[in-house]
Design a protein around this nucleic acid. Structure first.
Lengths: 145, 145
DNA sequence: TTGCGTGCAAACGCTTTGCATATTA
DNA sequence: TAATATGCAAAGCGTTTGCACGCAA
């Protein structure tokens, strides 16, 4: 089952399969949130999701959105991206990739991993492992001054 | 003027020179905060700085610590590192480098840039420039389950 | 009925702000 | 004295929590 790359809602069945694969019980709200997030590869904040859901007249509370996003992030369904210390984004792109952050617009853009190569990692003791590597490239309008 | 790499406070004069180089007026509180931060290459949060300063019986308010850290970050004296959306760290290491974040202890460790190579950056329009590349490697205890 | 998910509102933690006072040039 | 920095407390904002209610197995 693949997620459509166009801005269309995925079906309930597709959402259900996604949750099932991650061992998440498919409740009404979780399905709605998944359908929204996986409509395309994107980066949404809890606030944006809440706003969009109420626009779709879905009945979801703030607490449930936060609970659900945390659940999705814990189970690896989505990736939590921290750019600004004031807000979290949830990334529905499951493939390894990096991010381009536009400081002026606040937008987040995916960067194919091939374009940024991690040559090596510092030696770690056997007791520890790398959980993830986050690369954020901050870009903004060129300074002329 | 170089910053001592050992855990000793830098002198008022050294702190004053650092601020002067960044066009920052040298007030009592700013000097104290700079002396603390630049005692060594380290990553401190506003909270930690406030606690340490009061331990040193320096008279600084919370607001001033935040104002000062923002000022230092804006002028490039320190680097703001965002790891967790709940807390900001201020890095007194002026050289380009990356970070290793220990998820279990919350500690942040510097990684020499040579160990992580950025092979290339995605093409950008001429109107935009790269402001910085943040690489955070999350490590934690090895999973045995 | 037992457990889990949801919704609401209150609580929380970190950061910012408003304003009076103090310091500096 | 004019401008800027500080301190305090309150406000702000995103996120989490406590608890009652609802729903499904």
């Amino acid at each position: 089952m693949t997620v459509p790359s166009i801005t269309e809602q995925i079906t309930r069945e597709q959402a259900q399969a996604l949750l099932a694969r991650h061992g998440i019980a498919p409740t009404e709200q979780r399905l709605e949130i998944a359908r929204l997030l996986f409509a395309q590869h994107q980066h949404l904040s809890a606030e944006q999701i809440l706003a969009q859901l109420s626009r779709n007249s879905a009945r979801v509370s703030k607490a449930t959105v936060y609970n659900t996003l945390n659940l999705f992030a814990e189970t690896g369904l989505v990736r939590e991206v921290v750019i600004d210390s004031a807000k979290r984004f949830y990334d529905s792109n499951p493939d390894p990739h990096h991010h381009l952050f536009h400081t002026d617009t606040g937008e987040l853009e995916d960067v194919a991993p091939a374009q940024v190569q991690i040559a090596g990692l510092p030696g770690l003791p056997d007791s520890r492992e790398v959980l993830g590597v986050d690369v954020v490239i901050r870009v903004g309008p060129r300074h002329t001054d």
